[in-house]
């Protein structure tokens, strides 16, 4: 991994995951230092009825405020946002969220690809993306776009993933800047803002 450094101060970290990703999120999020000057957005595949459950669960595990991303809401640092189920989540140029109920992509809504691509357009090099455990390749195309626009891509080590297909695809297609365990992901994010 030659380009193993983040090119600009990250403003947004988007974490995408599918089957087996919740356990990883529940390891990473509580391990994050408080008051990192960055917004975190979680895009995961799940049933529409589970919206509040995930937000409530993360709020009990994290000292960061966790909330569902609402349409037109400005993206603010120090918050963890959760993409609502059954909508695609996009980013606007003024750093606010947009929702879209168009066709599923990769059999998924929200689609990780759509959020990754849209965030890449807006945030360029100040975007960090993380792709976790999952059973399809949603997110891989999005990571290609993030790389082209200067962003940084972290992929969960498939050996640590419940379902290795999604991270393995990302690695096979050469989009990973770095491959990390769940503990490694949390440490990496914390050090983004302390290593100077």
């Amino acid at each position: 991994m030659a380009e193993n450094h983040v090119k600009a101060t990250p403003q947004l970290i988007v974490i995408g995951g599918s089957a087996g990703s919740l356990e990883v999120i529940l390891k990473v999020i509580p391990a994050l230092q408080l008051h990192l000057p960055v917004a975190i957005l979680l895009v995961t595949h799940r049933k529409p009825s589970n919206d509040d459950i995930l937000v409530d669960l993360l709020n009990t595990k994290s000292n960061w405020p966790v909330k569902e991303a609402e349409e037109k809401e400005p993206v603010l640092p120090h918050y963890i946002y959760v993409a609502p189920a059954d909508y695609h989540l996009l980013l606007e140029k003024d750093h606010s969220f947009s929702l879209d109920v168009s066709e599923k992509v990769n059999y998924s809504r929200p689609s990780i690809d759509i959020t990754f691509e849209s965030a890449a357009e807006v945030y360029g090099p100040s975007l960090v993306a993380v792709l976790l455990s999952g059973a399809n390749a949603d997110g891989v195309e999005g990571m290609k776009r993030i790389r082209r626009l200067g962003g940084y891509c972290i992929v969960q080590d498939p050996a640590t993933a419940d379902v290795e297909y999604m991270p393995a695809q990302a690695i096979a297609q050469g989009v990973a800047n770095t491959i990390l365990s769940p503990e490694g992901i949390a440490q990496f994010i914390n050090e983004l803002f302390t290593a100077g």
């Binding site: 037109k72 695609h88 996009l90 980013l91 606007e92 140029k93 947009s98 879209d100 168009s102 759509i114 691509e117 849209s118 357009e121 807006v122």
Partner: peptide, 9 residues
């Protein structure tokens, strides 16, 4: 119209 969705469509 919001641009992000429109641009993608």
């Amino acid at each position: 119209y919001s641009r992000a969705s429109l641009k993608r469509r």
